[in-house]
Amino acid sequence: MTDSQVLNLKVEFGGGLELLFDKKRSHRVALPSPPSSPPDAAKKTPADINFLIHWLKDNLLRERAELFIENGTVRPGILVLVNDTDWELEGEGEYVLQEGDEIVFISTLHGG
């Protein structure tokens, strides 16, 4: 795989989620391109946050996947920021990632 097919991202975890990811808050991630879908194999599928979530689960998550992912997306109670902006303003999981993006996952489930 060439470098042009890889997206370099900064991924951070907060609110206790870092405990699931090797107890490291900040990660530099080289995200590969997602596999193309069969009907149109020549057309490249852009990497979006949904793909990143699954990639993180398969490659960085160390324990208890159910605390991070649920029904194909992040578990309710996890706030996602894309370049310091709520992902709800950016199309949530369908936001197409860009080179150098900073994605933050913060758990809000650590009680009062």
Binding site: G14, G15, G77, L79, L81, D86, I106, S107, T108, L109
Partner: peptide, 9 residues
Amino acid sequence: MKECAAWAW
């Protein structure tokens, strides 16, 4: 909780 998380971050 969401606002609390954003404030803390």
